[in-house]
Design a protein around this nucleic acid. Sequence first.
DNA 1: CGTGTAAGGAATTCTGACACG
DNA 2: CGTGTAAGGAATTCTGACACG
Lengths: 105, 105
Amino acid sequence: MPPADHSYLTKKVISIGIVSELTGLSERQIRYYEERKLIFPDRTGKGTRKYSFTDVETLVHIANQMEEGVQTTELRRELKRQKSQEEVKRNMLRGQINAQFHKRH
Amino acid sequence: MPPADHSYLTKKVISIGIVSELTGLSERQIRYYEERKLIFPDRTGKGTRKYSFTDVETLVHIANQMEEGVQTTELRRELKRQKSQEEVKRNMLRGQINAQFHKRH
DNA sequence: CGTGTAAGGAATTCTGACACG
DNA sequence: CGTGTAAGGAATTCTGACACG
């Protein structure tokens, strides 16, 4: 089920130049973090990258970690851990909903 | 006192092409509504227009009104009425704050 | 009045590569 | 590994104007 995305936070509408201003990162850096799979912009029909405010926040976090000397590979692992954790939560929630359902039917 | 603007809703970061997609309006129309003082984008250093999500919502509202046959001059008046109303509210609030202050000092 | 369009120029973004370390 | 930069091209945006109605 893809996200419905009515949120101003996750809607991808910001071009890379603005993101650069917002984060203080160079466009080169922003593109590199995408290459390292830390950030996932959308693309317009002709290939221009578009970012959300959430992406901007993620980039600020990445920038802080990089200053701490953390490598992109480490950040990538961190991200994967987070994702699998979210999956665990979703599955637990689904289990509870199913239980409720069967109790009544 | 200028707005502090920590809001994702009012931060002007969206370029006109994206706004056009989001609203279904042509860039020509969007620029024209600015000329008629219905919308107030920021500009980047080199003059590119930047809009907020709130601007996008305003444009959708304008588009609906235009379909109803309302003229831009009428929408402009409506906007001015709203602004003066907000001013009234601000002044009332200030009055109450002042009253509270003098009661105690 | 509201909007389309062609015009010419300026600014933006993209990719792949070379460089340094 | 992470980032700067020059290169060439494509897409974006800007303004002022002419057109239609």
